[in-house]
Nucleic acid binder design. Structure first.
Length: 747
DNA sequence: AGTGTGTGGTAGC
DNA sequence: AATCGCTACCACACACT
């Protein structure tokens, strides 16, 4: 059974539900409300029918279309015999069985990989008191375990691709242009970076305790924007989405929430709950404009600190300001100014720490201001669902429910140790903090420096063969590369989405990824250029050995070099996988550093290397001379060759036998002096100098075999660069990887 | 004990 | 006819050293 389904199932049979059914939620936690409602229905059913058996234990069953007997009766049979009902397909749970009388052609495809059974199966199971073989009750011929034959799958993909072609040249850009989640993520990154800059400009404030923190955001932001030019609709239930039955609701107003409609829900389901629901479109430009106004107003306050939470949401430290003004008055004024300039309502939470500010904001919505203090908070929060606590999502809330904790006030029933054991140290500690109305996070200490850059695409991915997979992968890698700009990537993590073995070939959501198995791999990428990166990504993708037609999505994430805590590592040795050693001709090619045209700072990428094993040069020095000789004898097999097409910048030293010198210096002490002078001479290394140094090091290796000196110099460069700019550090890193690459074959 | 990798969870509308 | 299910960050378990 699927974990989520299992949790629901376990929960249902775990007895005392009285406290959570229809549990009062001041926070509009309608998701919880409906989950509770479902639990209550099941409980009622079970009670009405008595719990007769566990025949359907681990069965999560979806009822489709008209049935005989009716849904109500079938539900009663299933639930009272230990099963559970799957309210809808897709989403986070999935059905183990579908009960249907007959299916439309489309649903035939959609359900092809489910166990689709006739209602008689349920009835007969109950009558005979055991779980019967479902295959005798198939509602469709091609149902499990027969998968769609390859030709059928191919046909399906070809048809889908007529509508949505993920290989079209502009697919990725047009996709992201319409993706709300992409919009939210990229806006957040931008705003974080702006706040980071701002922090440098704001006066350094004294930091008395307690602080005064504002948490401010717009009420149902997307809907509010959509309603700006349609004021007559404002009392109707409204949502923002692209409009189709399986499209997500990005935002819905309070009227719609009364019907149980929630953000993230599919339109089809929302329409079941609220048939009069009106769908309005996105307006990303206007979101940006409102966001700008919001942040401008915040900055104009001259606060102590600002942290971007979202495009429409910020945490603001206003402690200094509040020595003169009353915080709630400040918040009210801010609210009115924003309303005046954007035409939409914002709410503000005011409190002495982040946790309480967030909770205050929830209480303040819609269109209000709420102040919470250490003393007033426990009372005000007592009945709030744990689901509404920051950092507590679906999964943790479910685990808490297993512990009998659904409300904030229930937390004190459980010991700290139980929380930590069940939920992990971090979450446990956080919950205890919350219970004490404390928050260890301080917004002025929150790091807003970007540590990684990634792209991910899991919609419309339908590919026929390895070539297409490579093409798509390559396109996505280019998208990633375009976002790297002058950053310093160190490792790449590839996240691969593959259709789960028992997930239907045709996804419930139109062109969605369906239920997937996700696997990931991490590789070092220091020194790779775009081509090298592409090759690496494609290799990795192939290593997942997924049938092309089952690929459903791909994520690529680059972890950036950490320049805040310098590593004092000596040379890192790459370690090739045994497989790639034999395929060395396919290795990504070595690149020269980019020319100055690309700007003075990015030295990026001219060496390839995979994994790592740290060794320092003593290890090499101590190698048996036999091994050293062997290496030298096989030089051609492993030494890295620099492409000769760029040889214009190659110094003569590489091809002629002159004394081994760098700018006329040969002694190690002298060379170190040259390096020091070089590093002092410029904020960032110049391209020509880099080439010269690289070639000198290459020469030491390839022609002079003076490896010790080369390693020593590179380590020295690394050592010195620790106090210099990122460019110097990156150069050192690239040189280390390059040297490591040369030593590699001794492993 | 520290390091690196793979996995999983959460947040925003 | 549909649909645009992203992304950054944290925490953890585990393997390896």
């Amino acid at each position: 059974m699927h974990p989520a389904a299992k949790r629901l199932h376990d929960h249902e049979v775990s007895g005392d539900e009285t406290n959570i059914e229809y549990g009062a939620s001041e926070f509009g936690g309608f998701g919880q409300y409906f989950r509770n409602k479902q639990i209550k229905l099941d409980t009622q059913l079970r009670e009405a029918n008595q719990c007769r058996s566990q025949i359907f234990k681990d069965c999560h069953i979806y009822l489709n279309g008209r049935t005989e007997p009716s849904h109500t009766i079938l539900k009663g049979l299933i639930v009272s015999n230990g099963g559970s009902i799957c309210a809808f397909l897709g989403g986070k749970t999935y059905a183990t069985h579908i009960v249907a009388e007959h299916l439309t052609k489309r649903k035939n495809n959609q359900f092809a990989n489910y166990k689709v059974v006739k209602p008689a199966w349920v009835v007969n199971c109950v009558n005979q008191g055991k779980l019967l073989d479902w295959t005798n009750y198939r509602a469709i011929e091609s149902s499990l375990p027969t998968l769609d034959p390859k030709e059928t799958q191919e046909q399906i993909i070809l048809e889908e691709r007529e509508k949505v072609n993920c290989l079209a040249p502009d697919y990725i850009s047009s996709y992201y242009a319409r993706s709300r989640l992409h919009f939210l993520s990229t806006k957040k990154a931008e705003l974080r970076s702006k706040c980071q800059q701002l922090a440098g400009q704001l006066p350094v404030a004294e930091r008395p305790s307690p602080r005064t923190i504002l948490h401010i955001d717009f009420d149902s932001f997307f809907v509010a924007v959509a309603l700006k030019d349609k004021p007559d609709l404002k009392d109707q239930p409204i949502c923002v989405s692209w409009g189709g039955p399986s499209s997500d609701i990005a935002s819905c107003n309070y009227k719609a929430r009364e019907f149980g409609v929630q953000n993230g829900m599919w339109v089809s389901r929302a329409l079941q709950l609220c048939p009069k629901l009106v769908c309005l479109s996105y307006n990303f430009d206007e979101y940006t404009r409102c966001s700008d106004v919001l942040y401008q107003e915040i900055v104009d306050l001259r606060p102590d600190y600002v942290t971007a939470v979202s495009v429409d949401e910020a945490l603001v430290d206003v402690t200094s300001l509040c020595s003169k003004t009353d915080a709630s008055q400040l918040a009210q004024e801010l609210r009115s100014r924003i309303k005046a300039k954007t035409g939409i309502e914002a709410s503000v939470g005011v409190a002495p720490n982040i946790f309480l500010a967030k909770m205050a904001l929830r209480l303040a919505k819609p269109a209000g201001v709420v102040c919470l203090t250490q003393s007033s908070a426990p009372q005000r929060l007592a009945n709030c669902s744990v689901r509404d606590l920051p950092g507590i999502g679906y999964h943790i809330a479910a685990k808490l429910a297993d512990l009998g904790v659904t409300n904030y006030s229930h937390l004190k029933r459980v010991t700290e140790n139980t929380l930590k054991n069940q939920l992990g140290n971090a979450v446990g500690t956080k919950l205890v903090d919350y219970l004490n109305c404390q928050d260890s996070d301080d917004i002025s200490l929150m790091d807003q420096v970007q540590k990684s850059v990634g792209v991910e695409l899991c919609w419309g991915v339908r590919l026929l063969n390895d070539n297409e997979v490579a093409q798509f992968t390559s396109n996505l890698t280019e998208e990633l590369w375009s976002r790297v700009q002058s950053l310093y990537p160190e490792t790449l993590t590839i996240k691969f989405y593959r259709r789960a073995a028992d997930a239907p070939f045709v996804t419930p959501k139109y062109m969605g990824c369906g239920r997937c198995d996700v696997t990931s791999k991490t590789r070092r990428v220091v020194g790779l250029d775009l081509e090298g990166l592409k090759t690496l990504v494609i290799q990795c993708v192939q290593s997942f050995a997924c049938p092309p037609m089952d690929m459903r999505g791909l994520g690529l994430q680059l972890r950036l070099m950490d320049t805040t805590t310098p590593t004092h590592h000596a040379i890192k040795f790459p370690q090739l996988e045994t497989a790639s050693r034999s395929t060395s001709p396919n290795k990504p090619k070595i690149q020269l550093p980019p020319s100055r045209r690309r700007g003075p700072t990015t030295l990026s990428q001219f060496v390839n290397q995979p994994d790592k094993v740290e060794v320092d040069m003593e290890v090499f020095d101590n190698l048996p001379s036999q091994i050293k000789r062997e290496i030298m004898a096989h030089e051609d097999e492993f030494l890295v060759k620099v492409p000769s097409s760029r040889s214009r910048s190659e110094p003569a030293a590489v091809t002629t036998y002159e004394p081994v010198s760098f700018r006329g210096v040969t002694s190690e002490a002298g060379l170190r002096q040259v390096l020091r002078d070089w590093m002092r001479s410029a904020e960032s290394p110049h391209y020509e100098d880099v080439c010269e140094f690289r070639d000198f090091v290459d020469y030491l290796f390839d022609s002079d075999w003076n490896w010790t000196k080369a390693i020593s110099l590179v380590n020295y460069l690394n050592h010195c660069s620790l106090n210099l700019s990122q460019d110097w550090q990156y150069l050192a890193k690239v040189m280390q990887e390059r040297v490591a690459q040369k030593i590699l074959p001794i492993n």
